[in-house]
Amino acid sequence: MVNLVDELSKAYNGDTWHGSNVLSLIQAANPQKVFTHPIPNAHSIAELVLHLTAWTEEVIDRIEGQIAKEPSRGDWPLPIEKTEEEWYRLVEDFRLVNEKLIRLITDLTPADWSSAVKDQRNRELGTGVDNSQLINGLIQHHAYHAGQIALLLKF
Rank of each mutant, 00 (worst) to 15 (best):
A54V: 06
V49S: 07
G74F: 05
T127G: 08
Q27V: 06
P79W: 04
V34R: 01
N122P: 01
D15T: 08
W17I: 09
L134K: 01
E99V: 11
I60F: 05
L8V: 13
I80L: 09
L52Y: 02
D112R: 05
G137R: 11
G14F: 00
P38C: 14
Q120A: 10
E47H: 06
P110K: 02
A29D: 04
T127K: 08
I105S: 01
Q148F: 03
E7Y: 10
G14P: 01
D93G: 07
N98A: 10
I45A: 13
T53W: 04
N21T: 09
E92P: 11
L152Q: 07
G147N: 03
G137S: 13
L4W: 07
A116G: 14
P71R: 03
N122D: 11
P79D: 03
T109P: 04
K154W: 07
N98T: 08
A46D: 04
E47V: 07
W76N: 14
A146P: 02
R121W: 15
S44M: 13
K100C: 08
E7I: 04
S132Y: 15
N131Y: 10
D61G: 14
S9A: 12
T106P: 00
L152R: 04
I67Y: 05
I26F: 11
H18K: 14
E57R: 15
N122F: 11
E86N: 08
L151I: 12
L78Q: 13
I26E: 03
G126F: 03
I149W: 01
V129F: 03
G128S: 03
R89F: 15
T109M: 05
P38M: 10
S114A: 08
H145S: 06
L104I: 02
P77E: 05
N13M: 04
